[in-house]
Amino acid sequence: DSWHDTVDGIELELHGADEELLKLAKELLKRGVSEEEVRRIIEELLK
């Protein structure tokens, strides 16, 4: 799946992010949310 590559990229960027955020990112990508949107959501949550 192409979203796996996206998640791997996000995981590299979010090496400090907790497991729950990564699960959320994967779930959003699986549901068709764009990579940009996922990054934006996670950045908001990390604030």
Results as ranks from 00 to 15, higher is better:
D1N: 13
S2E: 13
S2H: 10
S2W: 15
S2T: 09
H4R: 08
H4E: 13
H4P: 13
H4L: 13
D5N: 11
D5R: 00
D5L: 08
D5S: 11
T6K: 13
T6D: 12
V7P: 12
V7S: 10
V7C: 04
V7E: 10
D8T: 14
D8K: 05
I10P: 08
I10H: 04
E11D: 14
E11T: 12
E11H: 12
L12N: 08
L12C: 04
E13Q: 09
H15E: 13
H15T: 11
H15F: 07
G16D: 06
G16L: 11
A17R: 08
A17G: 10
A17F: 07
A17I: 15
D18V: 09
D18M: 11
D18A: 09
D18E: 05
D18G: 13
E19T: 09
E19F: 08
E19I: 08
E19S: 07
E19L: 09
E19N: 07
E19P: 10
E20D: 08
E20H: 10
E20A: 14
E20S: 11
E20L: 07
L21M: 11
L21H: 04
L22H: 06
L22R: 11
L22D: 04
K23M: 09
L24C: 06
L24F: 08
A25F: 04
K26Q: 13
K26L: 13
K26A: 10
E27M: 07
L28G: 00
L28D: 00
L28A: 01
L28H: 01
L29S: 01
K30H: 10
K30Y: 08
K30T: 07
K30L: 15
K30Q: 10
K30S: 15
R31V: 11
R31T: 14
R31S: 15
G32E: 01
G32H: 01
S34H: 07
S34A: 10
S34Y: 02
E35W: 15
E35S: 12
E35F: 13
E36R: 06
E36N: 08
E37A: 06
E37M: 05
V38G: 01
V38M: 02
V38C: 02
R39E: 03
R39D: 02
R39C: 02
R40M: 09
R40D: 03
R40E: 05
R40W: 06
I41T: 03
I41W: 05
I41H: 03
I42V: 07
I42Q: 00
I42D: 00
E43M: 14
E43A: 10
E44G: 07
E44C: 08
L45V: 04
L45Y: 11
L45K: 04
L46I: 15
L46Q: 06
L46D: 01
L46W: 06
K47G: 10
K47F: 08
K47T: 11
K47S: 10
K47V: 10
K47R: 11
